[in-house]
Amino acid sequence: MLKNDIVDTIREKALWMRRRAFRMVFDAQLGHPGGDFSAIDIIATLYFGVMRYDPKKPEMAERDRFIMSKGHATGALYTALCAAGYYPEDWLTTYMQPKSMLNGHPNRNYLPGVETNTGPLGHGMPVALGIAIAGQLTSSDYRTFVLTGDGELQEGSNWEAAMTAGNRKLGKFTLIVDRNRLQQGMGTEETNGLDPLDDKFRAFGWDVEVVDGHDVVALLSALSEPAGGRSKPLCIIANTVKGKGVSFMENKASWHHGVPNAEQYNIAMEELV
């Protein structure tokens, strides 16, 4: 596929994911739409422009792995896995219903394509690190991607993993930080500031790229593997907007787990085109 076609495909998938995720949240009257929307362009870029996988063989040893550490953003993850072909769309209608496989946080035992169970923050990085170390031990060429929220980086377990990844020079390991600068209640910098985040990761032995997390071309470029590979893990700080794509949701912490009424849902559908 030509690069322009890939970019168009990613944008189309991302639009569908936003609309479908918001419908899930509206129907369930539960979810985390603000964080879904800040992450969707990143996840769409990974699944439809970067990663190697086969939805018919979710356990394929050489698959690239995506770990959704910000496990609450299930609207983004579940629509991506559906669009990637892991399961049919009608599964999405069960979101958070009794005994649904689409729990409020992902469970790998229920859903193909989910690599590990997340939900409590700060769990994705160490697990992704273990996957990357397994790749290193077996000289595999799969890549491991982990997406964390930014507020999530206040959990110390991330820095334990960051230190190990830097020391082991895991060139196949990529962390993407969904840097929307808002956590559940208020701004990250007002809560327990993270800046300068790029310098922190460099000090831990990582390559760092800072990109616009809604610019598909920039994301594709940052996520592409240079010829000859990397000799350090890569941290992509993706500057994003919580609630991206819907005017009344953008940059509002209240949409972390806010849910729309019918009027808001209709306005959002008019804007998401």
């Binding site: 590990t116 160490p126 697990v127 273990g130 996957i131 397994a134 377990s157």
Partner: peptide, 8 residues
């Protein structure tokens, strides 16, 4: 966590 990832 690394243990879980190695199993993956």
């Amino acid at each position: 966590g690394v243990g879980a990832g190695l199993a993956n």
